[in-house]
Design a binder for these strands. Structure first.
Lengths: 347, 347
DNA sequence: CTTGGTGGCTAAACCGGTTTAGAGCTCAGT
DNA sequence: ACTGAGCTCTAAACCGGTTTAGCCACCAAG
């Protein structure tokens, strides 16, 4: 009574054929007569044979897995809903393709590069996702050097050998600015993500362009990190200015939520005294009072499409760049028509 | 000029020894003379040899990876900070142990079981994490059937062959109740997670026991899902009651944040008219106005310890159960002394 | 001088698949 | 009758490591 799991040798023996033929039959390849094929499949079924992915991985030199490296300080919980949703989307594609996702969470940039390198040289993955692009992003060159297929979320600045899957977040920012301008706001500020991150600087530029397009004076921009604590500080700074803005466009939801807290703490009524918009559509923003107007990005389908593109790259196709439907502005309660600013001073 | 990566056969040839000896030398095993060992290491270094994990995995019958399956509706973004932190903690242990994390995100329970089964029968992982325990959790039996090492987060109800790593969340709930009782609250409600989840029902029981211990009448309990939208609904229900509570203890932060929004929307001042506590210490709660009193759990070290225990299980040790320092109550602004209830009616 | 043990090493099997070279057979074309 | 093509199948190599059996030289003990 064999306690160990049956191998194709066992199947071969039971079906009275050679190992090689079993492999052909199980992989639906030509060169096996219909009767024999059926006999082999029957034997495999009876024995409860399951392929050993490790053996397969060695002989076909594939890992059947994709790599995702996320950089974040483990102690800082941003509450950013992007990755959970993105991963759910990725997963949806991978499951049906028999692939797995190998995840690495690293604290800093050096560890990030090391993680990519290790995933590839250990041959744990066949391709990698490159998220949160930065200026002069070293990961592009690294992936090229390692010769691993990759997909980037958004277009890197420098020419890249890898397909990009992009979602235009500029349209969402523009819609937010237009919405605010339409409500009569003129002094609109932007709390931007770090300039070194492409989506940070791109949203900032989108903001500046939208302001110009709306015929408004250049808005105040505070550049900071994407975390709640930084959004809070930036908001404090903005509200302390003599020409305090009547509306603030935040580059993500955690910053906006923290900003809302600061404004309320300062005695401002949102949206009466200050309008606020976020970015990324977190679940929790919807349940605040006032609920947060935001720009909804479909991170789930971003993940799904990126995974599909990466799988095609690995299969040797050369998928072109993909543009997803642009992010949509979702007006909720945190934006309202501008009112004459009170003389109230902010501490 | 060999373009392919060097194998141990190349190293063996260069060092003028057999393949087997190279393997011994590279694995620090006895039976290799010091000079020869040095020569082999030197040759490996010169050739830039890197082990091929796939080959190693096949011959030693190990995956060098751990599996984590997360169940959540991909469309619902809970903003729950637990998993990102937990994973960061896991990762910290794995990286140094040369292990990787294989992540699976699934939408429902059937898919969850299938995901565990697939991870194991595909031999992608050497052990699995079992998080978010439920009553009669089928995953325990499944892991036992599959013969895969596992670690559970918290103690399952039924006897389990696997080590448990637990963090006492009851103490945190008790501290929250005591804190509120000390502030003079008597009508304290609990918005609980689903009864089918162990931490849902355990926190609920802890609440009930703490109420009794404080000599308070049995509190109102609303059982619901862990999502923000459910916290909002539960809060609406509670506030509509004639004997409306003066304080609400929520079983997690997203529910509490949504509850805060509902209370504010109803015109209640938090904490004046209603005190609120959350659970899990999300980053964003700290920046709300009022900031959220909560129970902080150290998910990062939970992940790290669980990973360590699982690795020891895989190594054949039989690590006992581990108890982490209990969750701590963190008072912030959303709790205050009870005030005479106004007659204000809630819509 | 034999015997036995030990250190250092090689050759070969092994893990469980895939892939290639080629054998044996049938059948059509000339 | 011979050739060649095509089909089905086997044997063996291969992927890149690990592990086992066993050889040989050397040395100490009897």
């Amino acid at each position: 009574m064999p306690t160990a799991r049956p191998t194709i040798a066992d199947v071969a023996q039971r079906a009275g054929v050679s190992k090689g033929l079993v492999s052909f039959a199980l992989n639906d390849r030509p060169g096996v007569s219909p009767q024999t094929r059926e006999r082999i499949l029957e034997a495999a079924r009876e024995l409860g044979w399951q392929p050993n992915l490790r053996a397969r991985a060695l002989s076909v030199d594939r890992a059947f897995a994709l790599g995702l490296v996320i950089m974040r300080d483990p102690e800082i919980i941003t509450g950013d809903p992007f990755y959970p949703s993105f991963i759910a989307g990725v997963e949806r594609e991978l499951a049906s393709a028999g692939q797995a996702l190998v995840l690495s969470v690293v604290p800093d940039e050096a560890a990030e590069l090391a993680a990519y390198r290790k995933l590839v040289t250990d041959r744990r993955v066949d391709g990698v996702f490159v998220t949160d692009l930065r200026h002069d992003d070293a990961r592009i060159a690294l992936a090229a050097e390692l010769g691993v297929p990759a997909v980037t979320l958004g277009h890197p600045e420098a020419p890249s050998p890898f397909p990009a899957v992009s979602m235009d977040d500029r349209a969402g920012i523009a819609a937010a600015v237009d919405h605010l301008a339409g409500l009569g706001h003129r002094r609109i500020a932007h709390v931007a993500g770090p300039d070194r991150m492409l989506h940070g600087s791109r949203r900032r530029r989108a903001f500046e362009e939208a302001m110009a397009a709306a015929g408004l004076p250049a808005g105040m921009v505070v550049e900071t990190e994407f975390r709640a604590v930084d959004g809070a500080r930036a908001t404090r700074d903005l509200l302390a200015r003599p020409d305090r803005p009547t509306a603030i466009v935040y580059a993500n939801d955690p910053m906006a939520i923290a900003g809302l807290g600061i404004a309320q703490r300062a005695g401002l009524r949102v949206p009466h005294d200050l309008s606020i918009t976020g970015f990324d559509g977190s679940d929790v923003g919807e349940h605040l009072f006032p609920s947060l107007s935001t720009v909804a990005t479909d991170a789930v389908s971003w993940g799904a499409v990126a995974a599909r593109v990466l799988l095609r790259s690995i299969a040797g196709e050369e998928p072109g760049d993909t543009d997803l439907p642009p992010a949509r502005f979702v007006p909720r309660e945190s934006t309202a028509p501008v009112t004459e600013p009170t003389d109230r001073t902010v501490p």
